[in-house]
Design a protein around this nucleic acid. Structure first.
Lengths: 150, 150
DNA sequence: CTAACTGCAAAAGCTTTGCTTTTCA
DNA sequence: TGAAAAGCAAAGCTTTTGCAGTTAG
């Protein structure tokens, strides 16, 4: 996607509401697990078996642009999407990739600390916590007690 | 890369110092611009024209593992590498991708705020500032004053 | 000697794009 | 009726991997 679109000219689109877009939005709104495009594709496919992955990508992009959903660009290899468009942070399991909301309020003031100290114009920040989900914690402590003979 | 390696078993390697590894490390240490693997490849190629990109990737991985360099996993499409292995944050230009250090001290205490409020075991956090570098700022303000006829 | 490493090329994984046809407004 | 969007397939980009030959220690 053209990441600079809104900054440069913001070509105005007249968006249409297609059945595909509608179902994609509905499905994302049902999912609390910060799904990837592929997971959304699989969910939507149950309703619209003929939809293509490309259409899902295009619509997720448009829906984020419209502010209907939020595209999460975490330090993961895949992008995830969130029905909750409010600013909030996330915590990601380093082992299985599970993403939860981080129970901590956004800190806009972090950006102020840079003011005057950098030549950049600050536009925002991203904060992501890394950790282990309970399931993976458990698995790892088992491993530690019974190391695979190697 | 196996992101879990250090967590699970950490198979012990006896690393060797090859000419390739040596040059890669030297080159990274010369670069202050948080280079991507490909940029490092291009720099190293001037010294070792026959080196392959795969070798560069493998060595960057090993060097990070050894703590000789730091792999930066920013919210970018490419990974970047840093000779400076100390904990520090970065600021990235949303338009051209330039990465600078962020003049702000690491805040370990952020993680404490989550303690007890999440089911995750916190291992760390990543903070990245998003902005516009001076060059891109300039270009954009020009654009605003002289919008491309469209 | 031999496990670590290299170069090369192919493959993998996620995302974007080109093209033709369909469809919403 | 015309721009937006869909479906399909191909391509793009970064990173990883398999393999056969090479090399550091």
């Amino acid at each position: 996607m053209d990441e600079h679109r809104d900054i440069t000219l913001a070509k105005k689109h007249i968006y249409r509401m297609t059945p595909q877009r509608k179902v994609i939005l509905e499905e994302v709104r049902k999912m609390n697990n910060h799904p990837s495009a592929d997971e959304i594709y699989e969910a939507v496919r149950k309703k619209l078996p003929r939809i293509s992955l490309g259409t899902v990508y295009r619509n997720l992009e448009i829906l984020s642009e419209q502010g209907e959903i939020q595209k999460l660009e975490l330090t993961d290899s895949v992008n995830r999407y969130d029905w909750d468009t409010r600013k909030h942070y996330h915590i990601r399991c380093v082992r299985c990739g599970r993403v939860d909301n981080a129970p901590i309020a956004p800190m806009q003031q972090l950006e102020n600390e840079l003011y005057g100290a950098t030549v950049f114009t600050i536009l925002g920040h991203r904060l992501e916590f890394i950790g282990l989900c309970p399931e993976c914690s458990k698995k790892l402590s088992c491993l530690k007690n019974n190391p695979p003979d190697k």
